[in-house]
Amino acid sequence: MDESPRQLIARQREAEPRYRGLESGHRACQGCGEALAARLVTEVAGGDVVVANATGCLEVFTTPWPQSAWRMPWMHSLFENAAAIASDIEAALRHQQRPTKVLAFGGDGGTFDIGFQALSGMLEREHDVLYVCYDNEAYMNTGIQRSSSTPHAAMTTTSPPGRERMGKRHLKKDLLSIIGAHHIPYAASASVAYPRDLQRKVRRALEISGPTFLLVHSPCPLGWGHGGERTIEVGRLAVQTGLFPLVEIERGAVTAVMPLRVPRPVSEYLALQGRFRHLFADEPRAREELEHLQALADHNIAVYGLLGGAPDALDADGADTVRRGGAVA
């Protein structure tokens, strides 16, 4: 019997030359950075893992019962306990002498804020878990409220600009440094805009026995106010401006950064996003906040030494270079 087009594509899906941990049919928004990040992470992690997932968009859009988009064993318990759940899955597997790796997934709310204590405990107890924080810089699942990861001056529903305020008053929490201070073997930041770098870091983390942490910048088209087709462009500019530096931290020390060939002005990044629209009003406060954000980017560039020397295949311009048949880097 002849194969129908649907049978053909189903067969092609099964024959794909990569592991798909996150299957199609999930209900993430169009162009969702978090869905992409989770797909990229699970792809390299492979099937011999167990995932503990905090409450949040990722959990909701992947598992409306009875349809689950996950292909690996996956568990959601609560908002704030992904790290604890992962800890004990790991303890149980260790007790059962099984080599299966454990991953924990959380958003920035579940990681920077409400789940921070459980995460700190997990790191301190040296559980062999890779914790991945999908950082979209606000509580998106509940409708875009500010978190401690929301960048300075960004508009959310709980940090709206108005006569007295220009978006979020406070700064983005420097979580990675706090994680690094736990003296764990490996912590890194990554971005969906640099998928190969991201996947390299996942691989690196999974090779290490002990707690590892990955902060993945994951643009949210709905919450940030940009088209779904611009998720990568926005993510790339966050890196290239210095606002979201890509760094690797081992035992508390910065051991590698992705250098910037030519830092882009922050206004290029901000102008793409509705959450910073108020910063482009013709008024002194807006200009001051733009300068403030530029200063924060410059600060990151100085503190992490992001300015590269000669062009480099792994710098922020070179790392995403492709050629016929695949990536260069």
Partner: peptide
């Protein structure tokens, strides 16, 4: 595996995860 957690909240989470993982 005796896990000395950082709160009762995590203690309960830990046993949940462990049991779910088959221990």
């Amino acid at each position: 595996e005796l896990v000395s957690v950082e709160s009762e909240f995590s203690a309960a989470s830990v046993v949940l995860g462990a049991a779910a993982a088959g221990s």
